[in-house]
Design a binder for these strands. Structure first.
Length: 136
DNA sequence: GCCAACGTTGGC
DNA sequence: GCCAACGTTGGC
């Protein structure tokens, strides 16, 4: 099992949108590195959902409900892929980017190192650490 | 609103 | 194939 974090602009499509639909397509990713990670996703993998822009915090827990398949929004058939995500639960305490930067255990996260990457893996310990500080 | 990082495009 | 110009993302 692998652990993931996906970023989204809440004004465009946020955690609430995914929660409202329960399960939805995660499409429109147009970055090769992100695409390659999406191809590694397997049904059941946990996924943290991060809001970029104004809020800058991890807000929810989802899981992969369908592994990679051709992105229907890829009109030119260029090989982009989508996955399906299912909302699991909102984090009771969202984990802010500022908090992540303060935690020694989270310094190696791709979120801090590659600010523009929209789909990234997490280690199991990073994932568990985030969930731990998201409860209280 | 600004700017750094970084990906893409296009001229050569 | 290189690299300058340009566009986009996203934090501050």
């Amino acid at each position: 099992m692998k652990y993931w974090l996906v970023k989204t602009e809440p004004e465009t499509y946020g955690w609430r949108d995914l929660e409202a639909k329960e399960e939805d397509i995660w499409d429109g990713v147009r970055n090769y590195q992100a695409r390659n990670y999406m191809k590694e996703m397997e049904a059941g993998d946990p996924v943290l959902v991060y809001h970029s822009g104004k809020s800058r915090e991890i807000v929810g827990l989802a899981k992969v409900s369908a592994s990679a398949y051709p992105d229907p929004s890829d009109k030119e058939n260029k090989g982009w892929v989508s996955v399906n995500l299912s909302a699991q639960k909102p984090l009771s305490v969202p984990v802010a980017l500022a908090r992540i930067k303060e935690e020694d255990a989270l310094q190696e996260m791709a979120l801090l190192k590659q600010s523009r990457l929209s789909v990234m893996p997490l280690t199991q310990s990073e994932f568990e650490y985030i969930l731990k500080i998201a409860v209280r």
